[in-house]
Write a protein that binds this DNA or RNA. Structure first.
Lengths: 214, 214
DNA sequence: CTCACATGTTACTTGCGGTAACAGTAGCCT
DNA sequence: AGGCTACTGTTACCGCAAGTAACATGTGAG
């Protein structure tokens, strides 16, 4: 067969693909998630149909783009999660890693999580409806695995671990999103507060007495 | 003044508005969040510009639509949250209320949370990017208030309560979203697992020994 | 030289959000 | 009555973005 030739051509195609993704990245980071295919093609120095030949449709481009960032973030999280340290330390390190990532590149984060919120007249963005889930889901599954591997939860551990994995990721995500918007405290404080929550401080706290009237 | 006349006209306008919202509701529930303004107008028996006169733009229609459902859900949550019962009971009741709501009307839920995921060719949906936050945010703020009112957290209670409010809501949301998709267990089990997480079972559990190799 | 193939283009269709300009209708004011 | 305002409704259009068809061009293999 022509495998050797194929590989050569394939390599060139892959390089092109990577270049296109980087161009897309630049545009998305500059113009927000509302970036149009035309704009991306222009940034890459080519025209639309080529993008479509490479990625099928806009969702494909988005998926490829998201996968890059998602993979990178997941790797960082895995490192923090799998470190040989006390559980609380690991939890705090993981929370901090995530928050540091979204703090450092809020544009990327918003692109991954929140679809069209670009410019004033950009009402249609990437259809992240089906794609924003994956990041959260993948993080949830990853965390679930680690929990089940390393925490002794008795019977039903598999199910419990999955519920907790997704729940904790959701907590991290929502709190991070809110924090990124309002910046009501430092990152370290946020990490500490969330870890405290996970450590049962809600259950341990007493009822408030002398509260409002009743 | 012409207040009396105005009220009469206003009433008619309000009735129309409500009718339009109900039509929009039907269409969104049927066609998913990718419903077009034309489709909504047709369902209401009128044409597009009228929708725009009433709601300004698509975001306005969405916001009005979302507000109805959000208000209803928030009211139910408030009731569970403010009940005169033990804290754990209240937490479980609130979780269950939320999960029951999204279980009963997944279409509404997906519309509120996830934008365009409609039909196969519907790539642009409502720009929920800026509107899905509100529901989560409002729930988070609501919960924050209740936490601060009723739980004794010592100094920094305000900040801590807000972090926890948003975090817990995010946990509930993410776990609910995942659960709704996979249905890995009953609602009661999910509620119990999440409450256990909030009650510090993660911190209380021991390390797993004899785990994978290390 | 020519065939096959990959790369690139221009020019188009479709469909949606949003708007302008026009038409009919009900009540009030003098 | 007749006209003024204000609301409801329409058709017909613009702009823009996704996605596609058809055409052009370079390049290595036989």
């Amino acid at each position: 067969m022509d495998t050797t030739q194929r590989t050569e051509q394939q390599r060139s195609a892959d390089r092109r693909r990577r270049e296109l993704l980087e161009a897309a990245d630049r545009v998305v980071l500059r113009d927000g998630p509302g970036a149009s295919m035309n704009a991306i093609a222009a940034e890459a120095g080519i025209t639309k149909p080529i993008l479509y030949r490479h990625f099928g449709d806009k969702g494909g481009l988005y998926a490829a783009l998201a996968k890059r960032h998602t993979d990178a973030l997941l790797e960082a999280l895995r490192a923090a999660l799998d470190a040989p340290a006390e559980r609380r330390e690991r939890v705090e390190a993981t929370l901090d890693t995530y928050l540091a990532a979204i703090e450092a590149r809020p544009q990327v984060y918003r692109f991954l999580m929140h679809p069209s919120e670009g410019g004033p007249q950009s009402d249609q963005g990437f259809d992240v409806g089906l794609h924003s889930a994956p990041l959260l889901r993948r993080m949830g599954e990853e965390l679930s695995k680690v929990i089940e591997e390393r925490v002794d939860l008795g019977p039903d551990s598999a199910q419990l671990a999955r519920v907790w994995g997704h729940g904790i990721v959701g907590m991290m995500h929502a709190a991070g999103d809110w924090w990124l918007g309002e910046r009501p405290c430092s990152r370290a404080e946020l990490v500490r507060s969330l870890a405290d929550l996970l450590w049962g401080r809600l259950a341990a706290a007493g009822d408030k007495v002398g509260g409002p009237s009743f």
